[in-house]
Design a protein around this nucleic acid. Structure first.
Length: 264
DNA sequence: ATGGCTGGTAGAACCAGA
């Protein structure tokens, strides 16, 4: 068995629109397992053969037409695939697998939550909070060593956004979302790999809006994407990076990849 | 100046993202 495994996570914002830069990521970085979110492709139009040719012959696809969709592409064998419906409406937002070493990989796309941070005015915001609450209940019962990655759509710390004050009432950084994510983290003692390797208050954004003509100019980023690991295997994570340069690649996603290595 | 853009799908003065 391999002594180490490299795992990447990327909200790709349409896998079919990003095939050149996905290929670039996989060729420039040693990635054993790639977790994608927002693939925007039903399974029958997912570019499975493209990934097979790159060596990612083990695949777990959880797609749907138009929106959402997640996938795990792997050079290593994947076992016991599963999918939680934490949204409770059938949307394709989670897929999980077990690796031969016994560790589970869970790949999640938490809903964005709409514009208004009030569940009485905006049902999508309530769905987001309920989604996180269902993940919390799941985490409370979790016994297997697990790495959970994905677009959590919450920037929890003050230093996880370009301006804490400006974003306090903006969905992704509101106190109620941060509280829900904190409860989720505590339910399993999840270790935030991002902040373990880039300690607060160091800048660590993973998303920049498309709306700015030059995202580097004002640097109005947020840390929405995360990798969390069970406390029992936290010491096995040897390094972690946020691949910020990918935001400047041609025809980019608005999110950048996260990558970490697990040792045995 | 948190939408100024981007994608999918339809063929929209659409929807969604966050």
């Amino acid at each position: 068995m391999q002594r180490s495994i490299t795992i990447a996570s990327w909200n790709i914002n349409s896998v079919r629109a990003r095939m050149p830069i996905v290929e670039r990521l996989l060729k420039e970085h040693h990635v054993d397992i790639l977790c994608l979110q927002e693939t925007k492709a039903a399974n029958d139009v997912f570019p499975a053969e493209f990934f097979r040719r790159l060596g990612y012959v083990h695949q777990q696809l959880r797609g749907q037409k138009m929106h959402h969709g997640v996938a795990i592409l792997s050079r290593l064998e994947l076992a016991d695939p599963g999918s939680h419906d934490w949204q409770d409406n059938g949307e394709a937002r989670h897929v999980g697998v077990r690796l031969a070493c016994g560790i589970r990989i869970e790949n999640v796309y938490v809903p964005a939550g709409g514009d208004t941070p009030d569940r009485t005015l905006n049902p999508k915001f309530g769905q987001k909070l309920d989604f996180i609450d269902r993940m919390t209940v799941w985490s409370e019962g979790l016994r297997e060593p697990t790495l959970i990655v994905g677009d959590f759509n919450v920037a929890p710390l003050e230093c996880d956004v370009w301006s804490h004050k400006a974003l306090l009432n903006v969905v992704s950084h509101t106190p109620v979302e941060v509280e829900a994510l904190t409860q989720l983290q505590q339910a399993h003692g999840w270790v935030d790999i991002g902040r373990a390797f880039v300690p607060a208050p160091e800048r660590c954004f993973t998303w920049w809006s498309y709306r700015s003509p030059d995202f580097t100019k004002n640097d109005r980023g947020r840390r929405l994407d995360h990798m969390w690991v069970s406390p029992s295997i936290a010491a096995q994570v040897s390094w972690h990076k946020v691949l910020e340069p990918c935001r400047s690649w041609e025809r980019p996603s608005d999110h950048v990849p996260l990558i970490c290595e697990l040792n045995f």
